[in-house]
């Protein structure tokens, strides 16, 4: 028996098994469930496109309202948080990589460590900071705002917490990429009279094109799946203005009362399609422009 013929399966096999069991089969079943009426207790009943029709076209339905409100709030989160989660780490990484900056690893650790804290624990910390009675924000600055119940502050608390906990990972990637950019390029640019901003735009950014595309696509996909931050900080309020789609999906499938898993699956499939289309578009646009 030719051992080498099968050896690669030993390396890739465990991952394939985990992928099939925990990702592929549940995903396929999730798509199937979106065409059914299912309460998780009895067998799913095939309803064809009914769930999609209700969500997308029946304006009298609460599911229609929930989907579009959830999608709108999710898009707000994505639209604001993704640029912040890309730009801030990029600027920090560039700053840390500057040759005059000392204690590079110390600063990197300070920024990276919040990402290791669970969302629940982080939300507790930030909830207390923004607590109108006990919180630092109101007591230090003399404000009397109920941050999590007033817009736009409710969104602000969510974004602050997200950026605080989320920039470390991207920053590490950018820093590693920037440190690999040849110094010759910077020196040549300097000889040509380029200042720091010109060097950043014309040398650094094109040189880290692939890590940039990767982080933008992954951060966007992650942002679409936001759940913990609004749940813990604002519980979707005030007046459902921070209730994101994942919160509605979870409530429908695993909330109180009988599960409405078919409708929840249909919403999840639609969300998945939006993520897929936007990620593909981002990849295409960024790859084409930088090619």
């Amino acid at each position: 028996m030719d051992k080498s013929k099968f050896s690669h399966w030993f390396f890739i096999g465990p991952h394939i098994i985990l992928f099939v069991v925990f990702i592929l089969i549940p995903s396929i079943y999730g798509v199937y469930a979106s065409f059914t009426n299912w309460n998780l207790m009895t067998s799913p009943t095939w309803v064809g496109l009914d769930n999609y029709r209700t969500i997308l076209t029946n304006q009298d339905s609460s599911f229609h309202h929930e989907f579009f409100n959830g999608m709108k709030n999710t898009l707000i989160f994505v639209g604001v948080s993704v640029p912040l989660m890309v730009a801030i780490p990029l600027v920090i990484a560039s700053a840390i990589e500057h040759k005059k900056v000392k204690f590079k690893n110390f600063f990197q650790s300070i920024i990276y460590i919040p990402g290791l804290i669970s969302i629940s624990a982080a939300a507790l910390i930030w909830s207390l900071i923004f607590n109108s009675q006990l919180g630092m924000m109101n007591n230090f600055f003399g404000a009397d705002t109920v941050w999590t119940a007033t817009q736009p502050y409710a969104w602000m608390t969510i974004f602050i917490m997200t950026v605080w906990g989320g920039i470390g990972g991207n920053m590490i990637i950018y820093r590693a990429s920037i440190s690999n950019v040849s110094q010759d390029l910077y020196e040549s640019a300097e000889i040509d009279g380029a200042g720091p901003i010109r060097k950043f735009i014309s040398v650094t950014l094109p040189s880290i094109r692939f890590p940039l595309i990767y982080t933008v696509v992954m951060t966007t996909a992650g942002a679409f799946n936001v759940f913990g931050q609004p749940l813990m900080m604002t519980d979707g309020g005030p007046r459902e203005s921070t209730t994101v789609l994942m919160m509605y999906i979870r409530d429908l499938a695993f909330g109180s009362g009988q599960s409405i898993a078919g409708m929840a699956s249909a919403m999840a499939v639609l969300l998945g399609m939006v993520i897929l289309i936007i990620s593909a578009a981002q990849y295409y646009v960024m790859n084409r422009n930088s090619a």
Partner: peptide, 30 residues
Amino acid sequence: GEMDVDEGLHEMQRFVNDRVAEGDAELEDA
């Protein structure tokens, strides 16, 4: 007072009705 009483009650009723209707449809199908 962040939400009008009529609007709020209407939303609550719709919320419950839609969920109950889903469950009823399933039971009928079963």
